[in-house]
């Protein structure tokens, strides 16, 4: 019996990936606003201190920025980003178990970053009311923590969907979107690290 050739597969729309891209753009703009405000207010404080002839430092006297946990946190975020990319690579190779493993490691690194942020808070040991620096520091890093928690939730959902067979080597959009979000988190933290922890 003759049969007509199969119709061409409908073109995939990449909806989730495009939607995540716009979400990431919005997130990047939000962090630009946060860090821009931090820098502007910091400069105003430094200018005022300079004009008053006082020591020019945004950090209150006696406060030392805990550099080591912050630096480790940056490395951890880079690893998390690499793991997210590995998840995409593994899915393209048809290695579903490796994909789930990579996503799991991403969540683990995310939890590590969360733990390190708490370590920074404990080492810094300043109250949010104590100074302009403290208010802005907790505002910026708190916003990053929220973004990190969203990323971990995104990763868990992606892991379950991946294990449920939702994605395949020919349909990697969901995992690509997850990876894109974690790349954004890493870049956002790198910017935060430079502005808040290095530049102080």
């Amino acid at each position: 019996m003759l049969a007509l050739p199969a119709a061409p597969a409908p073109e995939r729309k990449h909806s989730l990936l495009v939607g995540t891209a716009f979400g990431v753009a919005a997130g990047a703009a939000a962090f630009s606003g946060l860090l821009g405000t931090y820098l502007v207010e910091r400069q105003q404080v430094l200018d005022a201190l300079g004009q008053a002839g006082k020591p020019v430092s945004f950090l209150p006297r006696g406060v030392v920025m805990p550099g080591i946990p912050a630096n480790i946190m940056l490395v951890v975020m880079v690893f998390a980003s690499v793991m997210a990319r590995w998840a995409v690579y593994a899915l393209r190779q048809g290695e579903r178990r490796h994909t789930a493993f990579a996503i799991g490691l991403t969540v683990l690194f995310g939890a590590g970053a969360l733990n390190l942020q708490v370590a920074v808070y404990r080492a810094l040991d300043v109250g949010v009311r104590s100074s302009q620096f403290a208010t802005l520091f907790y505002g910026v890093t708190g916003a990053f923590l929220i973004a990190l928690l969203v990323g971990m939730a995104f990763a868990v959902i992606t892991a379950f969907r991946s294990l449920g067979g939702r994605y395949a080597a020919t349909d990697t959009d969901g995992v690509e979107a997850f990876a894109l979000y974690w790349h954004f988190l890493t870049v956002a933290f790198a910017a935060t690290w430079f502005v808040v922890y290095v530049n102080k």
Partner: peptide, 15 residues
């Protein structure tokens, strides 16, 4: 690209 920057600033205002 622009409105979230305002939201970020408002978040700091809230804190």
């Amino acid at each position: 690209l622009t409105l979230p920057a305002l939201a970020g600033r408002l978040a700091l205002i809230y804190v």
